[in-house]
Write a protein that binds this DNA or RNA. Structure first.
Lengths: 195, 195
DNA sequence: GTCTATATGAAGATAGAC
DNA sequence: GTCTATCTTCATATAGAC
């Protein structure tokens, strides 16, 4: 929407991030111009540089913030329990958290190649930290004989890939509720690692 | 490599496709210029238009060809048998075929948003045809009581997503051979759908 | 903090010579 | 079939007025 000249710093910052998030997810980082983002926010392109030093940093901030939000959210709800209980908790958390942020998740996986090596290392470290919890759960389950997994590192990647797939098709209000989706995937995860 | 003026149509065509494939996979369709492709091939940018009407068609051709290769390869080796045998055959075929074509697979999933609606429909129809075989296998297994799957449509998408994940980490000559990878994933697939 | 204006470069695609 | 040259548009980013 058009906007007359003036000061709006308190609201423009978040709006820039929201517009970039939505456009990057829909068209891809490389295909989106600063002018497009500015148009969506309702300012001229030059004004965006009050909020980001360049387009690249905008992408990196979105990705890093998403990974930090993921780790914070997980730390806030992770429960103690048996390996089986922890695995169910992780599975359901992963599906729910990611289904609520389709744009962030899409960008976090698709735009890795547009990061500098240093930025990539930061994002990958955060992602690895998240995946480590799942690997720990699988290791614990194998150690106590509840799970039979030939390679917990690969099983971790396989489970994450399977769960991430939910975002490619799940839509609120579709044939299945999120609860049903969680139950279906938990059923497959549970059996896939069962002893 | 530099190339003097002259006629090279018989070899330039495939080289254009190979260069585009490699560059699109590495940097993304939107981030690659026709000049980059031309440089890789060793011609000037204008010469590319002897082989493609535009950049977009180049992408579509790569994606459609990949999906047709996949269906052809699958049709050539698909076996009859029990649901369990067919599922193992499909699982191992999927991993092997996709691991041999990382660039094609990457593009086929990442660049869907750069297709026109008509092009997208073509690629999706081919993909759907491939996935239908897996769904049929799961339905057959459920019908005869060998499998317990609450929703075969979702299980199909979940299995494909899990198997596609192999390409994000598998490298020839790494810790595991492709045979070992196939065995590990087949173990998880088998158990995930087991009755 | 936002605007207008602009510097600078590169993009996709085409024309016409060889 | 490929070249050089060019048309036209658009990109990121900055400068300076308000």
């Amino acid at each position: 929407m058009a906007r007359t000249a003036g000061s709006h710093s308190d609201i423009t910052g978040p709006r820039v991030r929201e517009a970039a998030l939505s456009l990057f997810a829909r068209h891809g980082f490389a295909a989106v111009s600063m002018r497009q983002i500015a148009r969506e926010v309702g300012v001229q392109a030059g004004a965006l540089y009050n909020y980001t030093p360049d387009k690249q940093s905008l992408l990196f901030d979105l990705m890093r913030t998403h990974m930090e939000d993921l780790l914070d959210a997980r730390a806030a709800v992770a429960q103690a329990g048996t390996a089986l209980e922890r695995l169910e908790d992780f599975t359901r958390f992963h599906i729910r958290f990611h289904s609520e942020r389709p744009d962030e998740v899409f960008i976090a996986y698709m735009e890795l190649r547009n990061l500098t090596p240093e930025e990539f290392a930061v994002v990958e470290t955060l992602r690895r930290r998240y995946e480590d919890e799942l690997e720990d759960i699988l290791n614990e389950g194998v150690a106590c004989g509840d799970f039979a997994v030939p390679d917990t590192k690969i099983a971790t990647l396989a489970m994450i890939a399977m769960l991430n797939g939910v975002n490619t098709w799940f839509r609120e209000g579709g044939r299945l509720s999120l609860d049903e989706v969680e139950r279906i995937y938990w059923d497959m995860v549970r059996k896939a690692v069962a002893a």
